[in-house]
């Protein structure tokens, strides 16, 4: 399955998918996915024998970003899904029932950023101590906070770069 086919699959699910320059960026396909379609996208990748690599939170203004990486075992095709989440009360549907490996990754991002993964059975602190509460250590303060458009140039620019 080529990256182009994956891109079309994701496009069909309502994502803004683009091919990325793998030697320069390390991924083959990138896609912005609406939060309510992320489970469909994950299921589509699950059906195509993808493996979950990680779930990453990135704090930015005005919205946070949750990044998922998937990799195909044969043929090597890394897919990056991006989901926007509200910065004040970030909520993203969980994919831990589709990829059980996401369970810990999602808990970790909940520890660090306070992202609530809706439907996750147990969001108690995993890496942080049990009494961590609302510590959210990786949230940026105003001084270092950058715009999402600044750190992730829009797809059009990437097309030119690659």
């Amino acid at each position: 399955m080529t990256p182009e086919e994956i891109r079309q699959v994701l496009e069909a699910l309502g994502a803004e998918a683009t091919l990325a320059d793998h030697p320069a960026r390390g991924v083959h396909v990138e896609a912005w996915v609406p939060a309510d379609r992320v489970r469909d996208a994950a299921q589509a990748l699950r059906d195509r024998e993808f493996l979950i690599e990680d779930v990453i939170g990135v704090d930015a203004a005005p919205e946070m970003m949750v990044v998922y990486h998937f990799h195909r075992l044969e043929g090597g095709c890394r897919v990056r899904l991006r989901v926007r989440a509200d910065r004040e009360a970030p909520r993203v549907p969980t994919i831990q029932d589709i990829f059980p490996g996401a369970n810990w990754h999602e808990r970790e991002q909940h520890d660090f950023y306070g992202v609530v993964f809706e439907g996750h059975p147990d969001l108690s602190p995993l890496i942080l101590p049990e009494d961590a509460g609302d510590l959210r250590p990786l949230r940026k303060d105003e001084k270092r906070l950058k715009g999402l458009d600044h750190i992730v140039p829009p797809p059009a620019d990437q097309g030119e770069a690659s």
Binding site: I56, V58, K146, I151
Partner: peptide, 25 residues
């Protein structure tokens, strides 16, 4: 660094090790 992001995977002794690096300039 950047602005932009890269993902770099290497094969560590225990498996795939990934670095996701975001730069802001």
């Amino acid at each position: 660094l950047g602005p932009g992001e890269v993902y770099q995977a290497v094969e560590a002794a225990r498996g795939e090790l990934g670095y996701y690096l975001v730069g802001d300039g």
